[in-house]
Amino acid sequence: MVSALLVAVFGLLGAFVKVPYVALGPGPTYDTLGELTLQEGSAAEEVISIGEGPEVFPPDGQLRMTTVSVTTELSLFGALGLWGSGRYALAPEEEFYPPDRTQEDVENENRQAFETSQTSAESAALRHLGYPTFVSVGQVVADGPSDGVLEPGDRILSVHGTETVDDRQVQNSLTETAPGDEVRVVVSRDGEERTETVTLGANEGRSHGFLGIVPVTEPEVDFDIDIELSEVGGPSAGLIFALAIVDKLEDGDLTGGATVAGTGEITSDGRVGPIGGIQFKMRAAREEGATVFLVPADNCVEAVPHAPDGLRLVRVETLAGAVDSLESLADGGDDAPTCG
């Protein structure tokens, strides 16, 4: 009876008591060159649509962005079951949902990062295609040096005497300044040019002055690009978004009719950064029929031992490099840089 009672208690604990872990596994993938039904019963819409103006070239293959699923509220038995399946890994919950932030806070941050990745992808793609760019104020830090002086949407013409067409130039223009310095920022607001003076603040980890804005590089175009994916968070789709825009606006076919997948953050000037969960993303991609996977260079060491059979890993550092590699593979070449 005692043994039976202990087994029953353990069973109840294992089935209902939550453990402070999350399960990471392969998430859904999306063909950014294709269509997606956003709501049941509604018509399918293009994941990436280009507004009227430029010629759009229909692609033949697929460019799949990949995701990682994060399962929360795990019971002991549920966690052990997912881990034992071999498709999932367990990680401390606090790594994804820190105790000082609510789940809603984290989801909002991920959503904002996803929106920023879309903007960076558009800028990187259109710059690669030769379109001119300008810099605007994306966000103003609350109670920061520019709060009440600059406004979101201001077009930044120069900072501290340096003309700007790229958000990195905004940062570089402040490298020789110090907190407390006054700098002049020339902006265009509602079509009117104006010069504002900002007293720079201090920011942890920086010795130079802090302007207190998030500058955004935007393309100078007369058409819109819409990305219709609302249930995805984080910045790691940037590279694939940028490639899909290039593929649609440039004559030719980057995929050569194949299914290509990948991941990676991207900056507005086309640099590709590392991401997390690449082993799960590669598995999901292979299960969707991908034969090529674009891997940020800094993820290669982690990716190689987890690569599924039949999936070629192409090392990527920049958007231009990714385009060159895909064009080479589509033409039957074998010189694309690989991981390992």
Rank of each mutant, 00 (worst) to 15 (best):
F16P: 03
P145W: 08
Q103W: 15
T263S: 00
G34W: 00
V137S: 03
E109A: 14
T318A: 15
G34Q: 05
D143C: 10
V9R: 06
Q112F: 12
V140H: 01
L157R: 11
D31R: 08
A244Q: 00
V216F: 10
E115V: 00
I156F: 00
R101E: 13
G289Q: 06
P98I: 14
V165Y: 12
E288T: 05
E95L: 15
L329Y: 07
G153M: 08
M1N: 12
T71H: 09
R271Y: 14
L229N: 07
Y131P: 00
A121M: 13
R64M: 01
E122M: 07
F241N: 00
G233V: 09
V141L: 10
T217P: 02
L200F: 01
I266T: 03
D105N: 02
D269C: 09
I156G: 01
V149Y: 06
D147G: 03
T116P: 13
E93Y: 05
E218A: 09
A330C: 05
T164I: 14
I278N: 05
N203D: 12
D167M: 15
V141D: 09
N108A: 11
E196L: 15
G11K: 14
Y131T: 04
L211Y: 07
G262N: 05
P305R: 06
P179F: 08
F293W: 00
G14T: 07
G321P: 13
V70E: 03
D269S: 09
D251W: 15
D166F: 01
V22W: 01
A121R: 04
D251C: 12
T66W: 04
G340W: 14
G252T: 12
N172C: 10
P296C: 10
R189D: 01
V22Q: 03
V272N: 05
Q171T: 12
K248A: 09
A23Q: 08
D143I: 11
R312M: 13
Y131H: 01
F280L: 04
P54E: 05
A79T: 06
I240S: 04
A284W: 01
A290L: 02
V323G: 02
S158Y: 11
G205K: 02
G27N: 04
G161T: 03
P215N: 10
A121Q: 03
V47N: 03
D167G: 11
T72R: 14
F10T: 03
G310P: 09
L80S: 09
V232H: 12
N108L: 12
P99Y: 13
L150E: 06
I278P: 03
Q103H: 11
V295T: 01
G252I: 08
D253T: 11
L13M: 11
G144T: 01
P28F: 10
G161D: 05
